[in-house]
Design a protein around this nucleic acid. Structure first.
Lengths: 141, 141
DNA sequence: CGATAAAAAGATTTTTTTGTCCTTTATTAA
DNA sequence: TTAATAAAGGACAAAAAAATCTTTTTATCG
């Protein structure tokens, strides 16, 4: 479903949501260790998220990655679109180039119901709300 | 979502459902042309489906691939499981090894609903029914 | 300023997926 | 029984994704 890039990205953003703010930053090495994820690869992913404005970072001593107030307004769909592209949730499941409601593939309506449901969930899932659930230990990263 | 192997496989099975039976077989070359899919690669996919008993084939002149009565009892989920493995629809969307209802990842319940919906659809979507819709031109392969 | 710490950037390697090619085996028909 | 046809099987190649390594840039602090 999601690429590893995207999986790592979502988890990292949520980790940052729970553990950082403007005054408390964390470096890639620690994030990678905590999430048990390849550190250099994660570095690349964080670079992309930063460039897209979904996370924040400061170089140099005392620097690291963190989520700003602004960053927290994003939702999970933003992360997915940033890392896997918008097509992931919209393209034809069977890869047909001109699949549409008028010209549906065999799984068009079945898949679209489910995927639009998921897309709705991701869009309305704010990072802050998931962070609260993680703090309350209702879910785990 | 699905691998190309799986996309090609699903389309090929439906193509066979519409265009073949015990007395009318079709070769890989023609199937690949009709579906606009790489022919050698499709050959491999069909081999796997045949081994798993999801399609039938006969070597030699007049031979080719076809769907038997028995084959038509399968559903789309069987094809997906055969080609992409059972984990595709069941594994954690974020790739966490021990994600479960008791120990959910941040997207566990959101993803669960949607994916089980899809799985249900695939399981109850008989090949014959889709073939009928293709014949009626309600959908396209 | 110089040393150090951390992200950013670039280059390279490994692994997986996708795609191709060639040989072998089975079947049919002349 | 031989030629032709088609799938099966094995080996190989290309492309994409995942992972690693190295260098450069930016910031901080003594």
């Amino acid at each position: 479903m999601f690429s590893k890039t995207c999986k790592y990205g979502i988890r990292a953003v949520l980790f940052l949501a729970v553990n950082t703010d403007k005054n408390k930053k964390i470096g890639v090495i620690e994030i990678a260790e905590r999430l048990e994820v390849p550190r250099h690869f994660l570095g690349k992913v964080l670079q992309v998220l930063k460039k897209e404005g979904l996370i924040s970072s400061i170089k140099g001593p005392g620097g690291g990655f963190y989520l700003s107030k602004e960053n927290r307004k994003a939702n999970i769909e933003d992360i997915v679109e940033c890392l896997d592209g918008p097509s992931l949730l919209n393209a034809c499941v069977l890869g047909l180039p001109n699949c549409s409601d008028e010209n549906p593939c065999p799984l068009h309506f079945q898949a679209y119901a489910c995927r639009h449901g998921l897309q709705y969930q991701l869009r309305h899932q704010s990072i802050d709300e998931l962070a609260r659930k993680i703090r309350r230990e209702e879910i785990r990263i």
